[in-house]
Simulated assay, not measured.
Amino acid sequence: MLGTRFRQRWQNWVDYPLRQGAVYAGKYRVERFLGMGSYGQAYRCIDLSSGLPVLMKRGKPSKRGLAREMLKRESDMLQRLDHPQIPKWLDYAAHRKEEVLVMELVEGDNLEHAIMEQGRMFTQQEALYLVRQLLRPIRHMHEAGYVHRDVRIPNVLASGDRIYLIDVGLACRIGEAAAEGEPIGFADSWGAVKHRMRVPEPASDLYGLGHLFLFLMYAGYKPLEGQEERGWEEELALEPAVKAFVQGLLESKWRTAAECEQELDRILA
């Protein structure tokens, strides 16, 4: 027990965010700490050479070599992707024993924040059009040989009229085995869903897209008082063609994002 508490305190200490105003690698001034994931920390910074804001992703010091390995893999992948709905790679910089990935900063709110904090709700049509926009960067990734593996509302960002797919930290090559140390089991209630999303095949991203659509629809769902919980097929008032489309996403009906796009375009038309 004492050892566990000590390790937790040590981890909290070494992973403490960089202070505001700190200059990293002589290039980037930290403006704001944005958040922390399993392997990295994100900061809004100013590129001192251009004066422009950028996103800097720093590997969590407590994760040591694994964080550096995953950050380098993410950097290599971003350099091979070129799509207007995926943040662009800008730099990979070293500072002492640490390394950081610098990319385009997209200003906006992710869907999780929009739904949970702002109370945003979506009509069936709005949710379908959002899915249609997301299929474009997903298709680009698949055609480049990668699968995102984390298509969820925290990783979808709205900036003006454009929808971005962000955070390729868990992405990998299609068919690639899990990296050593990467979590493959999940203890929370969404464990089975996340486990399916981690399979390195294109259908995993379409499966994630199906659950994302359901999240959008449930944002405005209010069950009747005393009503027993039912499946989404009964609880959500979806048109038959839309219900069949969502089932297709969840049941791996389509092998590619392109096939999925064709079916969705038919429904939207």
Rank of each mutant, 00 (worst) to 15 (best):
A171H: 06
Y129D: 08
M121F: 09
I174P: 08
G160A: 07
A177E: 15
R152A: 15
H148R: 05
R162V: 11
V168I: 12
Q125N: 09
R139S: 13
V156E: 04
Y129T: 01
A127S: 13
A127C: 07
V156M: 04
M121L: 11
R162A: 06
N155S: 02
F186I: 03
D150P: 12
E143Y: 05
A158G: 06
P183Q: 07
V147L: 07
Q124N: 05
A144Q: 14
A179E: 14
D150M: 10
A171P: 06
I138W: 01
I184V: 15
C172K: 15
G185W: 14
R132K: 14
Q125S: 10
R136Y: 06
V131R: 00
V151E: 10
Y129A: 01
M141S: 14
H148T: 02
I163T: 13
M121C: 05
D150H: 10
G185S: 15
E143D: 14
D150T: 12
A158P: 00
P154F: 10
P137Q: 04
L134Y: 04
Y129P: 00
M121T: 15
N155A: 02
E126N: 03
E176P: 11
G175R: 14
L157Q: 04
A177Y: 00
P154C: 04
R149N: 09
V131M: 11
G145W: 08
H142M: 08
G175V: 09
L135W: 14
L165V: 01
H140N: 04
A171M: 09
V131S: 09
L170A: 12
H142I: 09
R139H: 11
P154A: 07
I166E: 04
I138M: 10
L128C: 08
R152V: 13
I163D: 04
R132V: 00
E126C: 06
C172H: 08
